[in-house]
Design a protein around this nucleic acid. Structure first.
Lengths: 151, 151
DNA sequence: GCTATATGCTTGCATATGCAAGCGAATCGC
DNA sequence: GCGATTCGCTTGCATATGCAAGCATATAGC
């Protein structure tokens, strides 16, 4: 950009743009090949990377940056097709865990192959070893969420 | 992450997470302080940074990674409140440009202040000069779109 | 020129999502 | 213990968005 835009603003704009573009490409392939949305994929991933492959709905909502009602409504159809199941907390009857099933884990594994392929397109041959490591480290610093970290 | 996840996959996941988190924080402040959504802000920004402060709807849709119908529907209420106006192409009557008005430019300028503040939170005091420059450069390489570049 | 195709835009319908209200369960203050 | 508050979840409503169909205009083939 020409104008007098500070470099942090520029970086933040590029972050949004790069993510939007990557997500848009991913969405098409996920929907046609795996029958899930990007957010459904991320939900499966958060669960897989949690103890006991499960999370309370509120916690899942926080990590996904969506509302609790969205989690409720996303989970319902995924339970119906067997990707997720429910689990109640023994100590606190308010909590209903979202649990990743074996079927859900298989679907996730398939989707991860596609994801990795797309990540390969994003970070193509022009990105050499050190570049990628540096980028990964910088992006880690950008994603602060201590608890909700996927990587 | 522990597992055997390749570093490109990790980077792409972090990209999505960092962007989601930044966007979520931005959305709340934009909505309450400026009365616009993040996508409306990006629409104004794309227009500002285009020749004649205007773009055909299809072109705007491509740059924003949304459908043409979304552009139509986003623009309508923004025209009503005077942020945007219309302009027809002299040569091709099919094309209806979305045009940034002076009012829209003012609103955008206000929102950019908030955006810059949030970008400052994202890239806080732990990010020194060189780090930020390096990050900006890497993110530029990630956002390939030749035409649709905002920065 | 005339028809066939392609392009730009809009609209109907279905889905996705947030907010606020409501419900049941746990915790706090006493 | 008991009412008041907080917390987790769900649901009603409004908004946002994509896809496919429809319409108007432009371009291509002839």
């Amino acid at each position: 950009m020409g104008c007098m835009t500070d470099i942090r603003t520029t970086s933040a704009l590029r972050l949004l743009q790069a993510a939007d573009e990557f997500r848009a490409g991913l969405a098409g392939e996920f929907s046609s090949v795996h029958g899930i949305s990007v957010n459904e994929f991320l939900m499966l991933l958060h669960l897989q990377r949690s103890p006991k492959q499960r999370l309370a709905r509120v916690e899942l909502a926080k990590r996904m940056h969506v509302s609790a009602s969205t989690v409720t409504r996303m989970a319902a159809p995924m339970e119906k097709i067997g990707l997720l199941s429910r689990d109640v907390d023994e100590r606190d009857a308010r909590i209903v865990f979202v649990v990743l099933t074996d079927t859900g884990a298989e679907r996730l594994a398939d989707a991860l192959v596609t994801f990795a392929k797309r990540a390969g397109y994003l970070l193509d041959e022009r990105w050499q070893g050190d570049d990628v490591v540096q980028l990964a480290e910088m992006l880690r610093r950008l994603a602060p969420g201590a608890a909700g970290t996927l990587t």
